[in-house]
Amino acid sequence: MCSERRKFVVILALFFSTFAFSLTICIDPGHQKEADLTLEPIAPGSETTKARVSTGTRGSSTGIPEYVFNLEFSFMLRDRLLQEGYEVVMTRDSHDVNISNVERAKIANEANADLCIRVHADYSSDSSLKGFMLLIPSETSAQSPLIYSDSKKAAEKIMASLLQIDGIDSLGIRPRDDITGFNWSEVPVLIFEAGFMSNPEEDVLLSTRDYREKLVEALVTGIEDYFLTK
């Protein structure tokens, strides 16, 4: 971030703190050590159900489970956001939990989060596929009138920031109406799919601290840009 822009963000943060106001980010590190395949409604009042928490993937080269990557990355993101003066709520801070996707959405709702970032990595049967993507609620999601516009705006700012990383591959912003954590959310929300652990090269890249730090810095800058436009 350039020095002039950083100064402006600092001044803005000082202004907020003067009036005892802070922005709250909820971070949801996807999955957990053990899946819970019992079912829960995909949306309020829906008869369609999905597993409470699915298994997640595993690194094709590193063997790192996705739930481990998700939490390690989320801790890095949490620490940077705290440094920037945000309040941060985590849906989990350990692996040995059982917190469903509905319950994770409710944690963000109850915190009245200004934005919820759900952290994941991806899998494809095509091992050549790579790149990050951002998922957002579709206009037809259960809570779309309340959260679609802001979720989309946040994703656009974060996308623009991530694309500043040299050599990064992007699969764009994709709306989804079948994600439980979106349909139960009452706050702006997006999923950051950091890359494909099924791609041997990208899996190794995602395991490096240097690349993780670049992703985190880009996310923080994008989040700041989003709030500066509100």
Rank of each mutant, 00 (worst) to 15 (best):
N109R: 12
P65T: 12
S151G: 14
I42N: 10
D178R: 03
Q143E: 14
I173M: 07
I117R: 02
R176I: 02
A43P: 03
C26R: 00
P175S: 07
F192D: 05
T38H: 06
L228M: 13
M197G: 01
R176T: 07
I173H: 06
V216N: 08
E66Y: 14
M76H: 05
P41E: 04
E224Q: 15
V216P: 11
L215T: 01
S54F: 04
Y226G: 10
N112T: 11
D126Q: 10
L129D: 12
L162Y: 03
F16G: 09
H31L: 11
I168P: 14
R52S: 12
A160M: 06
T91Q: 07
Q164V: 02
D177N: 15
L219N: 04
F192P: 01
R104G: 08
L115V: 05
P200C: 08
R92W: 14
C2T: 11
C2W: 00
P200M: 13
G172E: 06
E186V: 02
D150F: 11
L171Q: 15
I173C: 08
D178F: 00
D114P: 01
F8K: 11
E47R: 08
A154Y: 00
L12I: 02
I191F: 03
K130Y: 06
A108I: 00
N98F: 02
G131S: 08
N98R: 07
E193T: 04
F73A: 10
M1Y: 05
R80N: 06
V68T: 13
I173K: 06
D169Q: 11
T62Y: 13
R6T: 15
E103P: 03
A154G: 10
F69T: 03
C2V: 02
D114S: 11
E217M: 10
Y148W: 13
P137Q: 10
N199P: 12
K230E: 09
I107H: 03
G59S: 12
T180M: 13
K230V: 05
V10P: 02
L205A: 14
C116A: 04
F182H: 03
K50L: 07
D225E: 15
T49W: 00
V119R: 01
E47A: 14
V53L: 03
S60Y: 11
S61V: 04
D28V: 02
D210P: 03
V187S: 12
L77P: 12
N112C: 11
A43C: 08
R92I: 03
A121P: 01
F132D: 06
T38I: 00
K153Q: 15
D178H: 03
R104Y: 12
F8D: 07
N112P: 02
I42R: 09
T48C: 05
D93K: 09
L115K: 04
V97R: 05
D203I: 04
Y67W: 15
S141I: 00
F182I: 01
P44Y: 01
F227C: 10
D114G: 10
E213Q: 14
V102E: 01
D79I: 02
F196Y: 15
F182E: 02
T18W: 10
C2A: 15
V89H: 06
D36Q: 07
D36Y: 06
K157G: 03
L77E: 06
T55G: 09
M1R: 08
I136H: 05
D178T: 05
F16E: 13
